[in-house]
Amino acid sequence: MSEAPATSSIYDLGYRRYDGVRLGRRHAVAALYTHSLRTAFGLGRPATAKIVPIGLAVLTLLPALIALGVAAIASDVEIYSANGYYGYVEVILALFVAAMAPELVGRDQRQRTLTLYFSRSLLRVDYAVGKVAALTSAMLLLTLVPQALLFLGRAFAWNDFWGYTQDNWQDIPAIVGSGLLLSLTMSSLAIALACYTKRRAFATGGIIAYFVISTGVSAIVANTASGIVRKLSLLPSGFHLLRGFTLWMFDVTPTLDAQGNSNGPAGDLVVAGLDFYWYAVAAGVAIAGALYIIYRRYQTVAA
């Protein structure tokens, strides 16, 4: 807009153009990422918004703390192995993504702030990437911090810190790898479901319903059916998928109970009899599919 003539100063509302440095698209994505990561833990929001995410984050630490308490008293007792840890906290992790994914992507649709985002240098695809990256990072904190605590705590409880580390260092790539794949799988699936609705309750319910129902159905089919149906039965199940590729990365084969029956999700995987690396492949396919769905949604969503 051109400079207003001096005669019309009565209309001069003092509007000023921004003439600082324009930081551009990369900075916009980084800002969105940081803001979303903070939102995932309720930071910068009222105390009531912090209860659920912080509470769930503390709950994921609880088994590690219990294990350390036990290790302090009797250093040779190992109640959780690193590869079984997600088995204890998977429900908490699912609740976390179910509670926070709608918070990250639903709020902008509900309060029409998407328009504001898309009118800046941020592209639609950038928005999707920023949100998925933020939730994945939040999940990484929830998975890797307890694992690090467990590993370090056990190493300190052992008489010889370096001895323990040397004996167990090969677990570290598996811990990081499974944490990464698990975080990315759960986050992308959760956002793919959540970005299709404004209503928080529907998104939360949908995500939890997917994890719980698919796991319940798959476990029953794996222990009931036979042949090819049994073999493939656990692939659609969220929790079994996570457990399957975790076991593959740690190169562990779970044991069945004395009667040769399944004794939980790990046992179901043995009963189904599919090689564990297929679960990693399936997770890759699920992530790709979810990311594509999110991409499509943000290309067409009304801003």
Binding site: I220, V221, T224, A225, G227, V229
Partner: peptide, 8 residues
């Protein structure tokens, strides 16, 4: 699920 059970 019941049908899966009946079949195998």
């Amino acid at each position: 699920l019941a049908l899966v059970f009946r079949s195998g």
